[in-house]
Amino acid sequence: MSAVEQTTDELFDCRESFAQTIEALAAEDPRIVTVVSDSVGSSKLGGFRTKFPDRMVNVGIAEQTLVAVGAGLANGGKVPFVSAASCFITGRAMEQVKADIAYSNVNVKLIGQSSGVAYGELGPTHHSIEDLAWLRLFNNMKLIVPADPWQTSEAIRAAAAHDGPVFVRISRMKVPALERSADARFEIGSAETLVEGDDATIIANGTMVHRAVAAARLLADEGIATRVVNMATVNPLDEAAIAAAADTGAIVTLEEHSVRGGLGGAVAELVATTNPVPMRILGFPGFVPTGSAEFLFDHFGLNPAGIADAVRQTVARKR
């Protein structure tokens, strides 16, 4: 099988890629500012603050104000990157996100840090496994869930280049770098196929992409050629990639999110209304018990063995 391999064993915290990219962009574009809510360290924006002290607005622990101030800064001609823990920038400030950013359709970039269950033992208040479901409702907001450092950096650049609301969901969990050809490009709305295969398709994003690739390897060994699609953009969806996935006759979606309303829900809406094929949606069922992120992944079968199992079961239901 032709698989994307990790370049090295090195693991990366994608918040660092975000921080480096935003510093580089800010050096080129004086309109770029950052907005934080006592979230400088957790956003890795200490370097930005040192380089551009006047271009960081720290509103204190006040996420509703955080998001709304972002909208105001955009009105004043700035390009604000508003960054805080994903659970709070979405859940706590949802009406500001809806009315001030999405409905007002302003040029604000929301950066949801440490998304998914990265905060592990801190529990469901700090997990952000509802964010995609909430934000998917805003049809004009681009939603990007990058999988590795390169894609994080590209997503931030694409967000800056796009005139309109964008949400980029970043993890603090260390991930490998995927190997890509030199001419690889990231475009909002286009998925990338990481592993070829025609027996089934795993559609994943974010931290789960690496696990999907590992599961596909297990399945290849037993003769189930499983395609792995990295669906980094949840809105807008790459409809052609999903149509092609349906042609393999079995789809498993995989995300560090609730099984309700996220990537799986988005894919299912399209598949059910175009070319229904057997599907499984992998993720978290709801509020999770106490435990580290790694423990929770294993507990809910979001590891290569569990994912491979889900693919086998879905393939068995193929028509």
């Binding site: 622990i61 033992e121 801190l122 018990p289 106490t290």
Partner: peptide, 28 residues
């Protein structure tokens, strides 16, 4: 404290422990 499946979650959960009136963690 904070072990897998512990009642002592990183932030208090009233469904796990007596004496906790409401689940907290998000400030305010």
């Amino acid at each position: 404290y904070m072990e897998p499946l512990s009642k002592l979650n990183g932030h208090p959960n009233r469904n796990y422990l007596p004496g906790v009136e409401t689940n907290t963690g998000p400030l305010g």
